[in-house]
Every structure is written in C-alpha cells, then in structure tokens.
Write a protein that binds this DNA or RNA. Sequence first.
DNA 1: GTTGTTTTGGAATTTTTATTCCATTTTTAA
DNA 2: TTAAAAATGGAATAAAAATTCCAAAACAAC
Lengths: 280, 280
Amino acid sequence: MDEPASLAHLSAPRSIVEFRERLAELNDMMPKRLRQCAEYVGANLERIAVSTVSELASGADVPPSAVMRFCQILGFSGFTEMQKLFRESYFSGWPDYSVRLQNLKASGAGSPSALLGEFIEAGRLSLESLAASVDEVALNSAVGLLVRAETIHIVGFRRAFPVSTYLAYVFEKMSIPTMLHDGVGKLDPRFAMRRGDAMLAITFAPYSEETVALAQDARARGLPVVALTDFATSPLGRISDTVLTVHEVDFGAFRSLSATIALAISLAVAVASARDTLNE
Amino acid sequence: MDEPASLAHLSAPRSIVEFRERLAELNDMMPKRLRQCAEYVGANLERIAVSTVSELASGADVPPSAVMRFCQILGFSGFTEMQKLFRESYFSGWPDYSVRLQNLKASGAGSPSALLGEFIEAGRLSLESLAASVDEVALNSAVGLLVRAETIHIVGFRRAFPVSTYLAYVFEKMSIPTMLHDGVGKLDPRFAMRRGDAMLAITFAPYSEETVALAQDARARGLPVVALTDFATSPLGRISDTVLTVHEVDFGAFRSLSATIALAISLAVAVASARDTLNE
DNA sequence: GTTGTTTTGGAATTTTTATTCCATTTTTAA
DNA sequence: TTAAAAATGGAATAAAAATTCCAAAACAAC
C-alpha cells in the first residue's frame, strides 16, 4: 500500500497542462496496453471531448477496459470525469464571441462593423495558424543570435514598418540597445553596423529591395541576420542565419499584422529575459 | 402528406452552413417551444458537440422531448444524428489549434515558445473582446468624419506609433491623402493642418502629451478629431468628436496591438470604400 | 519448470442517455 | 363557444454508454 513510485494517483489533473505532465510522468512505468492508451490519447487530445470509451479504445487498439484502467491510473474516477475536464476546457474563452462576430459580419455588407468582423476573424485565424506552425528551433536560434548582439539593427519598410517601430519601442522599454533604420534623410545606414551587432530584418511579398540589400550588407560584414518574413522562399531566406516565417490570413486585398506582431513581441521579450539571466 | 410549407424535412443538413440555413428557414413557422430550442441552439452551436439532450433542454428551458422534436423537425432522425454532424465538423474547421497552443505554453516557463503561446492567447482574447464591445455608432460616425476630410492627419507616438504607421501605409495604398505626424526634426506640425482636414489621434495610457496637445490644437482650428484610445475617460475623450475605444489584453507588463490594428484597418478600409462611392 | 504477481480481455452489471408514446393543455378556425 | 388540430410535458421504454469483476494469460523471480 505504500509503493514509492506507484502508478496510482490520488488527485486528478485539474487542467490540460497538468494532464500532459501526468501523462509524461507516468509513461515510463506503464505496462504495454496502458502505454498504447497514453500514446493515442496524447496524440489525439482534442478527440477526448467528443469520443466514447470504445471509440478511444479502438483508436488505441486496446479493449475498452484498458481505457478505463488508463483513466483511473491518471487519477480520475473514470472516463466520465476525465472527459469532463476536456469538455470544460473547450469553452474557456468562448463566451458569446462567436455570436457577436456573426452579428457584426451580418450588419450589412461593406458596413464598417461588417468589415471589422472580417478583420477580427482574419486576425484570429492568423494567430491560430501561427500557433500551429511555429518553428521552435528557429525561434530559439533567433533568440540566441540576438541575445549576444551589442546593438540590434531593425530594418523593415512599408507594411513591415509598423512591426519595426513596435519592436524598437519594446526593445527600448527593456533597455536593449537598438537602432531602428527608418530611412529618414536617406542617409547610408551601412556604416552604423559594427562588429558584434546583429540585424533583424522584416519584409513580406513584394519584398522591399532596400531591406534585402541591407540584410545582405550586414551579412557581408559578418553580422548575424535574423529574418522575419512570410515564406521560407523569401529572398531573405538565402541571406539570413535564421528565418522566422509567419503567414497572415488576408481579407480581400488587405493583410493585417496580428500574428506578425505576436511573434515579434515574443521574440523581443525572450531576448530581454535571456539577457537578464546572462548578466546575473 | 403533401403539405406545401411543412415543418417536416426529408433530408438532414449535411454541413453547419446548411444547418444554419435550415434554422433560419424554419424559424418563422415553428411553435413556441421549438423556437426556444432554435434560439438557444443557434446561439450555442459549439456546445452541441459536447452536450446531452437534457443539458441542451435545460439550457433552452424546455423539456427534453421538445429538443427531440426539434432535431426531427430539422430533418435528423434524432439527437444522436444531429450531434454527429457537429462532432465531425469539430475537427475540420477548428483543427488542433487549442491543443497546439497548450503545447506551446507547456514548453517550459520563460522559453520563447511559451511566451509566444501566451502572446497568441492574449491577442486572440483581445480580438474577441473587441468583437463583443465595438461601439457601432461611434465607428460609423468616425467613418463619416474621415470620409469628408481633405487630408487625414495621423498622430500617435510610442506604443501607438506602429498603429499610426500602419494606418499611413494603408491609406497611402488606397490613395487617400494623409499626413503622418512622426515628430522628425521636432518641427511644429500645427501649421500643416488646414480647414477641411481631419485628425485621427491615437494614444494609450500613459497618454502622450504631444498627442493630446496636437488633438487639442486641431480642435481649436475647427478640425474634426477622431480618437482611438483605451478608455472613454482618456484625455482625448473630452477633446474628440468621436471616441473609439479598444482594450488590449496584456500578458505580464506587455500589451500587444492585435485588436487595435484590426480596428484601425477596418476604419481605414471603411473610409476608403465610402470615399469611392462618394466619388462615383 | 514452478510459484507468485501483474496484466489482460471480455462478459456481466450498472448507470446514463436517447427516444417514444400518450394523456393533457393550448391554440386555431368555424 | 365549440370542435378539431397542434403543441406540450412527463412517464415509460429502449438503446447505448460506462464501469466493474474475474478467469485466463503473460511475465518475473526463484
């Protein structure tokens, strides 16, 4: 009754995150069938809310009773309790939003409210697709490059310019030396780039020549270049050490910046916190 | 057996869109209880996949048998068949976003990916809350003021500056005369404002004095002022003809711009299309 | 190999959920 | 006002789940 590393747990996970932790923690000490359950469930978390025991069982290729044992080992009283967790967490953050959005969009084609509904939807889709497509390796490596930079040079014009100015603002707030290349006075910005600096270049199709040229120049001077762009095939792709891609869902001819800005601020904050720990 | 506008339908809806259509089509000829069902179900479509008959029934405040009749009137053999439609379309339209997000957030506190997960979530919440809180009247009146402007003056510094530059970019793309007040050279921008122009001022707490001062000045010269700000109590509130408020959900000390930019682009596109119809 | 332990599969049971049916009430039209 | 039709609510039933239990199989230690 007092097994040190027992499978049995007294408390059920209270959130999806806890659920995943429990899954990882127990995975090693589970017998074959239960591990099959764990594997299938872990890879199909979103199904749990709408599946039955036997559907899950046949998905994992085990008998239903194995699924029951699996639920209990995780700390739930049974399948019903486990499913409850997933059903509830589905609605968090989903109050009357979808209804309001429908209302907005329905308020007359071309009306400002209808437009707003569409852009909100596009923004949301962009964020969701970003969540599903981040390249974590690239992101980590981008942080790594920028952490070591003396000064970060930010380049991006036209549609990318708001992202540049936002990054410059955020970096400044966190006391990180940056230089925003804004093209004022058409001065030649190349001489500001010094050994030990890094460049963060931002451009989207149709790619701005100035941005690409500056990135190229930085590269030639031996500065590491991080690219924030829309496709891996972008001209920045060949030039840069690390490429972060982000795809914005457009509405009509217009493309917003929700996902791009989310990625940009994450990058900035990650760099800042990594610097802090570096200096401690 | 040959009723012309009967409630009974032979074929069940094959998709959510068809489902909505059927709902709208039948709504007029339904009796009281069934209409209650229709209303509740229509407003809580996403619940169907994970609800039981009696949960739905108590949500709509009708007995379970009414829900059964409702399903059958829509063309389904029963509740189970109707639920099947929603469970299946659960995965297609809304892939594994929430799971991916959980994955991101779980990837180690402080890691870049985890940060990104948080900012994506914050952005999404901001957009959703914008959908739920737009003041359609104010939005329409803002469009009305800006449509009639000869030149639109855009003012906004620090965190609002990316929004300003974005608006300037979008207006420019649509050939609308704008002047972005960027503070370069600290020139006095007041003399650029001419009768017939309008100002679009953007600021968030802590409110930038320059922005407020410029808006005040525009007002004094008789230009209409549209404010884009975070609270109705903002200093711009007293000065402006129309106030658009947008509340960004923050993560830690950081606030992104998803909702603000969605509102900004909607405003810009609405102004542009209203101008086009004006000139036809 | 034998013995004790853990794991497994599926049949039996219990609980929950969906569905039907019909007596009662409400509405509609004459 | 009354008769016919439609709608309603709830009790009864059927179906489908979840859950338990135990005999058989697999495994481990000796």
